[in-house]
C-alpha cells in the first residue's frame, strides 16, 4: 500500500514532464512509477493522515523559505570567499546532531546543511550525528547549531 502511495505522485510527475496524457503514455508511466517505487525502501516515517496535512504544508512552506535563503546566502558567501585575494578559509570538520529520528528527516536535514553557507556533509553515523565540512570552522561552529535547530524543528513538525 505504501508503494502505491509513492507511485501515484511519481506517475503525476512523469505525466507533467512528458506533457501528454494519452492512454499508452499513462500505461508506460504507471509501469515506470511502480518499478521505481518497488526499488525504494519503505521508510519508517510517520503514516500519512489528512488531519496532519495543513500543519505539514505550513511547515513545508516555512522550510522551503528557510532553505531558499540558505541557498542564496551559501552561493553568495562562497563566491565572496573565492574572490577574496587573501582566500580567508579555515577548513575543518565539525560534528552536528541531525536531530531527526526518521531516515527521511535526517536525509533532508543533511541536504539542507549541504546547501547552507560554507558547509558540506561528509559522513553520518548511526546515532544521527552529521559530520560537516566547513570553509570557516569558527564561524560555522558558532552559527550552524542555531540554524540547525530551526531546520530540525520544522522537519520534526513535518515528519514526526
Amino acid at each position: 500500500m505504501r508503494r502505491v502511495q509513492i507511485a501515484i505522485p511519481l506517475l503525476l510527475v512523469y505525466l507533467a514532464l512528458s506533457g501528454n496524457v494519452t492512454l499508452p503514455n499513462l500505461v508506460v508511466g504507471a509501469l515506470v512509477a511502480l518499478g521505481v517505487s518497488s526499488l525504494l525502501p519503505v521508510g519508517n516515517g510517520a503514516a500519512f493522515s489528512w488531519k496532519r496535512l495543513p500543519r505539514f504544508l505550513w511547515a513545508l512552506i516555512r522550510y522551503f523559505f528557510v532553505v531558499v535563503t540558505d541557498i542564496l546566502e551559501g552561493g553568495l558567501s562562497t563566491a565572496r570567499l573565492v574572490l577574496d585575494p587573501k582566500l580567508p578559509i579555515h577548513p575543518g570538520i565539525i560534528a552536528l546532531p541531525a536531530g531527526s529520528r526518521t531516515e527521511l528527516g535526517a536525509a533532508l536535514s543533511a541536504h539542507a546543511i549541504s546547501l547552507s553557507p560554507g558547509e558540506l556533509v561528509v559522513e553520518m553515523d548511526d546515532e544521527g550525528t552529521l559530520f560537516v565540512h566547513c570553509l570557516d570552522v569558527q564561524q560555522s561552529a558558532q552559527y550552524a547549531e542555531a540554524a540547525q535547530r530551526l531546520r530540525r524543528r520544522l522537519l520534526r513538525e513535518m515528519f514526526e
Partner: peptide, 21 residues
C-alpha cells in the same frame, strides 16, 4: 565557481565551489 575550483587547496573545499557557486 571555476575560479574557486582552481584557487581552493583540496578536494573538500573545491566541492564547496563546484557544489554551491
Amino acid at each position: 565557481g571555476i575560479f574557486g575550483f582552481l584557487r581552493l587547496p583540496d578536494v573538500y573545499t573545491r566541492l564547496h565551489a563546484s557544489g554551491k557557486v
